[in-house]
């Protein structure tokens, strides 16, 4: 029952959503199912948070990565306290509320910092990728140099045409090939799941 129940449920709901794509009156139920998924997801978030707190409390008990765990627990409970306070003040999402201050002056800069690291990682990855080790790497380097020259103001006029050609013909052809493969693979996997041949979501 532990395996059969979820399997039957997934097959029935999968078939329902497939049929609803073609039969309009069934689409309402499809929306309801998506709503259920969101509700289950919200409850699952609580499970995730409990796991997060347990894992960091365990770290503190064992003396592992103590500073990091302390910062996380302080950040978690601090933000929660500020949020509850702002909620009872009735201004939780006011731009000048303490909660939005935490969002604007702590969370957003941290997110921006992580995102900006991408520029450095791009440079280091490009350095490795553009080392000419074989013919493919040489072609990659040439294509990248031409596209970069076609995207900067000084050389844009000279290289714009060939840049557009590289992006619209060989690059797009490769991307579409992969996308068609992915679409077919997704249909294949969906059919395997519907037929019960593949059950990656079950033990």
């Amino acid at each position: 029952m532990k395996r059969t129940g979820p399997f039957v449920l997934s097959v029935v709901i999968g078939l329902w959503i497939l049929v609803a794509f073609f039969v309009k009156p069934l689409r309402g139920a499809q929306q309801t199912l998506l709503l259920w998924y969101t509700i289950v997801g919200a409850f699952a978030l609580v499970v995730g948070l409990i796991n997060l707190i347990q894992s960091h409390l365990r770290n503190l008990q064992r003396g592992q990565n103590v500073p990091y765990s302390l910062i996380l627990l302080f950040g978690f409970f601090g933000t929660l306290a500020v949020g509850i306070y702002a909620f009872f003040q009735g201004n939780a999402f006011d731009p000048y509320s303490p909660l939005m201050w935490v969002y604007g002056y702590v969370l957003a800069p941290l997110q921006s910092t992580m995102f900006s690291l991408l520029a450095f990682f791009l440079a280091s990855a490009a350095f490795r990728a553009f080392r000419i080790r074989n013919m493919e790497a040489l072609l990659l380097l040439l294509a990248a140099v031409i596209v970069m020259l076609g995207r900067i103001p000084w050389t844009e006029h000279t290289f714009a045409g060939i840049t557009e050609w590289i992006m619209a013909i060989p690059n797009l052809a490769a991307q579409r090939g992969i996308q068609i493969g992915v679409a077919l693979g997704a249909i294949g996997m969906a059919l395997r799941i519907l037929f019960g041949l593949e059950r990656p979501y079950l033990r």
């Binding site: 978030l45 995730g48 796991n51 997060l52 894992s55 365990r58 941290l110 997110q111 992580m114 995102f115």
Partner: peptide, 17 residues
């Protein structure tokens, strides 16, 4: 142990960090 598979955050760059 269950501690091997753990939750971090659903925030994109929080997860990356």
């Amino acid at each position: 142990s269950e501690a091997s598979v753990f939750y971090l955050t659903s925030d994109q760059f929080g997860y990356a960090a």
